[in-house]
Amino acid sequence: ETWTVFRRYSRFREMHKTLKLKYAELAALEFPPKKLFGNKDERVIAERRSHLEKYLRDFFS
């Protein structure tokens, strides 16, 4: 099953920080790092999307 969620990266990062405070075991999940430069580059966006998808798969498993 596939879901499509339209949210900004910052909202996922905020969710991760909030949940990590409540559920300490989530700290073990690696959240994709923020890029200061090149964040509009298609390659960077695709890489971030891939890392975010892995994070979410790990989160829900």
Rank of each mutant, 00 (worst) to 15 (best):
E53V: 14
E42F: 14
Y23P: 00
H16D: 01
F12I: 11
L19F: 08
P33V: 13
L56C: 11
L36M: 02
L52A: 07
V5D: 07
E30I: 15
Y55T: 10
R8L: 15
F37P: 02
K20N: 00
E14V: 05
L56S: 03
F60Y: 06
T18N: 03
R49C: 14
E53W: 15
F59N: 00
E53M: 15
R7N: 08
L29V: 10
E14I: 00
K22C: 06
S10A: 09
F12E: 00
E14G: 07
H51W: 09
L52I: 09
R49Q: 07
R13D: 15
R43S: 14
G38S: 06
K35A: 07
Y55E: 00
L36C: 01
G38L: 03
A27I: 08
E30R: 10
I45W: 15
F59W: 10
H51P: 07
P33R: 08
W3N: 10
P33K: 11
L52M: 08
F37M: 04
P32I: 13
K20S: 04
M15Y: 14
E42M: 08
R7V: 09
K17G: 06
H16M: 15
E53F: 14
R11E: 03
L56G: 04
S61F: 00
R43V: 08
T4P: 08
R49S: 08
T18Y: 15
V44M: 06
R57G: 05
I45Y: 06
A28R: 10
H16K: 11
F37D: 07
Y9S: 11
A28T: 10
E1G: 02
E47I: 07
D58W: 14
R43A: 11
V44E: 08
K20T: 00
E14Q: 03
K35S: 08
Y23T: 04
R7D: 03
I45V: 10
K17P: 02
M15V: 14
R13V: 04
W3R: 06
H16V: 15
Y55I: 07
K35W: 12
K17Y: 02
Y23E: 00
I45S: 14
Y23N: 00
E47L: 06
H16C: 10
S50F: 08
K54D: 03
R7M: 09
L21I: 04
E25P: 08
P32F: 15
A46K: 13
R11Y: 07
K54L: 06
R43H: 12
F6M: 04
G38F: 06
F31V: 03
F6I: 09
E42A: 10
S50H: 09
L56K: 02
R48K: 09
L21H: 12
F59Q: 03
P32N: 14
R13S: 08
P33W: 15
T2N: 05
P33N: 00
L26F: 13
R57T: 05
K20Y: 00
L56Y: 06
R8D: 06
L19E: 00
F31R: 01
E42R: 12
A27P: 05
R8K: 15
A46T: 14
L29K: 06
R43Y: 03
L29C: 06
A46R: 12
Y55D: 02
H51G: 14
F12A: 06
E53G: 15
I45F: 13
F6A: 06
L26D: 02
T18L: 06
R48P: 12
P33C: 11
L26V: 04
L52G: 08
K17W: 01
E42G: 14
N39K: 14
G38M: 03
T2S: 03
E30M: 15
R8F: 02
F59R: 03
I45R: 12
K20M: 01
E25V: 03
R57V: 04
P33G: 14
E30T: 12
R43T: 10
L36R: 02
F37W: 01
L56D: 05
A24R: 13
Y23W: 13
R43E: 06
L36K: 03
R49K: 15
L36V: 04
D58M: 11
K35I: 03
H51S: 09
F31Q: 01
E30W: 15
R57F: 05
S50D: 08
Y9L: 11
T18K: 09
L19D: 00
K20V: 00
F60L: 09
F12S: 02
E42C: 11
K20E: 00
L56Q: 13
R11P: 08
L21G: 10
K35N: 11
A46P: 14
R43N: 13
L21A: 15
E14L: 04
F31I: 02
K17H: 02
H51L: 09
S61Y: 01
K34V: 11
Y23R: 01
K17M: 05
M15F: 09
L21V: 12
F6Q: 04
L29E: 00
A46D: 10
M15G: 01
L52F: 11
A46V: 09
A28P: 04
K17R: 07
Y23V: 15
E25S: 06
L29A: 13
R49G: 10
A28Y: 00
E14N: 02
R8T: 10
K22R: 05
H16P: 07
R57Q: 01
F31A: 02
L19W: 08
S61E: 01
L52Y: 00
V44S: 15
P32C: 13
Y23G: 04
W3T: 04
R48S: 10
S50G: 08
V44C: 15
T4A: 09
R7S: 13
N39W: 08
S50V: 04
F12C: 07
F12H: 01
F6L: 06
W3V: 03
L26R: 00
A27G: 05
T4L: 05
E1N: 08
R57L: 04
L36W: 14
T2Q: 03
A27F: 07
S10Q: 04
F6R: 02
K22V: 11
F6Y: 01
L29T: 08
F60G: 02
I45D: 11
W3A: 02
D58E: 07
R13L: 08
F59P: 02
S61G: 09
F60V: 07
A27C: 12
E47F: 12
E53P: 14
K20G: 02
R43W: 07
E14D: 07
T4I: 06
F31M: 01
R48T: 04
K20R: 07
L19N: 02
K35T: 02
H51M: 04
Y55P: 07
F31W: 13
L36S: 02
E25Q: 10
K35H: 07
I45L: 11
L36F: 10
S50A: 07
L52W: 14
A46F: 06
E47Q: 07
R11C: 13
D58N: 08
L19V: 02
R11A: 14
T2E: 07
P33F: 15
F60M: 06
F12Q: 01
D41V: 13
N39Q: 11
L36E: 02
P32R: 13
S50N: 11
S50E: 01
K54H: 03
S10P: 12
T2A: 01
Y23C: 13
R48E: 04
F37V: 07
E53C: 15
L56P: 05
L56M: 07
F37K: 07
L19A: 01
S61V: 10
R13K: 12
D41C: 12
H51I: 05
E53R: 15
K17Q: 03
K54N: 08
Y23I: 10
H51K: 15
F12R: 00
F59G: 02
I45P: 14
A28D: 00
I45N: 11
G38R: 08
R43F: 06
R48D: 07
H16Y: 13
K20H: 04
L52K: 07
G38Y: 01
E42W: 14
L36Y: 03
R13T: 09
V44P: 15
R57P: 09
A28I: 05
A46C: 12
Y55R: 15
R49E: 07
R57M: 03
F60S: 02
E1C: 07
A28S: 08
E30K: 10
E42D: 10
E42I: 11
Y23D: 01
Y55K: 15
K54M: 05
G38W: 08
